[in-house]
Design a binder for these strands. Sequence first.
DNA 1: ATTATCTATAGATCTATAGATAATGC
DNA 2: ATTATCTATAGATCTATAGATAATGC
Lengths: 221, 221
Amino acid sequence: MARPKNASLTAEKVVDAAIALIGERGLEAFSMPKLAAELGVRAPSLYHYFADKESLLVAVARMVATPEAPTTMPEDAHWSEYLITQSVALRRRIVRYPQCAPLLVRYMPREKMFGEYEQLCQFLAASGVPASLQVSIVDGMTALTLGAAILGENAADYADSGDGPSPDPVEHPTLRRALDTIEGLSSDELFETFLRTYLDGVLGGSACSATPTPAVRRLPR
Amino acid sequence: MARPKNASLTAEKVVDAAIALIGERGLEAFSMPKLAAELGVRAPSLYHYFADKESLLVAVARMVATPEAPTTMPEDAHWSEYLITQSVALRRRIVRYPQCAPLLVRYMPREKMFGEYEQLCQFLAASGVPASLQVSIVDGMTALTLGAAILGENAADYADSGDGPSPDPVEHPTLRRALDTIEGLSSDELFETFLRTYLDGVLGGSACSATPTPAVRRLPR
DNA sequence: ATTATCTATAGATCTATAGATAATGC
DNA sequence: ATTATCTATAGATCTATAGATAATGC
């Protein structure tokens, strides 16, 4: 068919299809011919949009990590609410395509994130958070978010109401009882309590001295 | 050479070499011929020890996740110290071969860990931790550990004394100042402060009512 | 007879390039 | 002339099996 009347591909369509394919079949099953088949074209056509497989994967990583819309927050919000909103959104993006998580780690070296970290620290500093806590907060929240996203299925799925397999009450009675106490929380809500617990630790820990508000509001039960 | 006088392979040697190879070159560069070359044999010999590539990778995941020696703790240690010791050890194992982390996630489905979770919850219950906190603690610590391990290089490496690239004081002044406050902490120590911060949150949060000791000891500065 | 290696190889990929071809824009 | 697709293909893998071979144990 050579050149079609209307171009069937765009770089964005290619990336979107790559994300979907990796999400469904996993990174190991990903290849240029398979992606092309998914898009209804032949493999060489993809090289018109990306120089090689690696630059396509870089674009995939960037897309997964980038929010669709920037976060907007009320003016008077506490800095912790801002961080929680950001973290919840990041986790949600990763969880949507957990198979892409290794790409994130591989193609987003920390030094390229200095700019973003600088912004966050400035924001924290402006909110009165002492420098000694800023690293703990940013790094801890990042680790918690990434870890929670990669674990993927979490406790909420193992409670009776969730999707996953549920532990047997006879074989695992204590785990069972513990899970019953979170019955009704979605995995988003559960993740949010993790974040708030962590921030409670930051605020309530011995190093806490110059924080504007005494505690982070907890989720309503 | 056919059969050698002394068998040159064992399942364990194969797994060890696989871990080393994946650690050095990454999961994508891993293949049976390359692993065989590393061991000084031909690829088909590996199939004598593992039915296929996948069962070899399962064995790799198991090896990375399993501690060499079980943790021993003083009798009177607080439960939080026990959890911290476990988490620090797990992170250290993952960080040693961060390229294997995707294997862990892929080949260790949560339901196979019910047994371990049951044990942890029993341990927490015996220490007087209410059921409502047990999930938060176990899941939160796991996420924090996995996330911190996968992020790999952490803030400690970006401080002046660390290995990694350091942010420029002119371009990233606030980040720079924040990192200077953790100067001198190793990445292990920094991770431990994350864990203690999280546990401070668990203990100090509003849900805290029946905890035996009021606060978790912080690392000495 | 069994074990642990080997050689040889079928069969299925994959990445990336060269060069043809048809549509479009100037 | 340029663009976006195609066909064809070189060249390099990889996984896994069949079957040979030499050392060992009975």
